[in-house]
């Protein structure tokens, strides 16, 4: 079913919207959650939560990109769960590995208040200045937590090349954010 129809079902408060969304995007959402949490049970839980949250937010929301909308919810919920799990033990996921790479952008010692929305928008602006390959690789690595192997296979490049490209993108981002006045 097309996304517009599914959104329409949400608006009509027809619960088939949930089953349609699940049928269409289960694997997509599952991969997002699993990449972060490395736990299938948790991933299932995240999917259910995501659909519930979508049900509660549409309406009033009317997402133009349902897939991305659901993906963002799933990722947000996954990060929340990751925080909780991470307190107990390190979550051995690809996400954890990718998170470590962000260490050259952020300083864990800095504890100032930062509006994550504004920061995300600034990052988005920066990403528009880099190449298509660099942008998609960055989002795939740090949003979707795809492995270097997956990304390099898609791009037909070596893992080393992708790693290097990600490094340069991160360095550029750091510079950009510094210029924009972010101290992270």
């Amino acid at each position: 079913m097309q996304d517009e129809m599914i959104v329409e079902l949400f608006w009509k408060r027809d619960e088939t919207a949930i089953s349609e969304s699940e049928g269409k995007y289960r694997s997509y959402l599952s991969k997002i959650a699993y990449s972060v949490l490395a736990d299938l049970e948790d991933a299932r839980e995240i999917i259910n939560e995501t659909l519930l949250r979508a049900w509660n937010s549409i309406p009033p929301q009317r997402p133009s990109m349902l897939k991305t909308y659901l993906g963002k919810i799933a990722r947000e919920l996954s990060l929340d769960m990751y925080r909780t799990k991470h307190r107990k033990k390190r979550v051995a996921s690809e996400f954890t590995v990718s998170l470590d790479e962000l260490g050259d952008i952020v300083s864990e010692g800095f504890e100032g208040e930062i509006d994550l929305k504004l920061l995300g928008e600034a990052i988005d602006r920066y990403l528009q200045t880099v190449s298509y390959e660099a942008r998609t690789a960055f989002v795939q690595r740090y949003f979707f937590a795809d492995s270097l192997r997956e990304i390099s296979a898609r791009q037909g490049a070596s893992e080393a090349a992708v790693k290097s490209m990600l490094f340069r993108t991160r360095q550029g981002l750091k510079e950009y954010l510094t210029k924009e006045g972010y101290e992270i």
Binding site: T68, L102, V106, E108, G120, V139, F144
Partner: peptide, 23 residues
């Protein structure tokens, strides 16, 4: 800033950027 918070900020990337990478 915690790396996790930074990662969380990526949830505010534009739909288009995410959709492009997803594609």
């Amino acid at each position: 800033m915690k790396k996790l918070d930074f990662s969380a900020s990526l949830n505010h990337l534009s739909d288009e950027t995410i959709a492009e990478a997803e594609a």
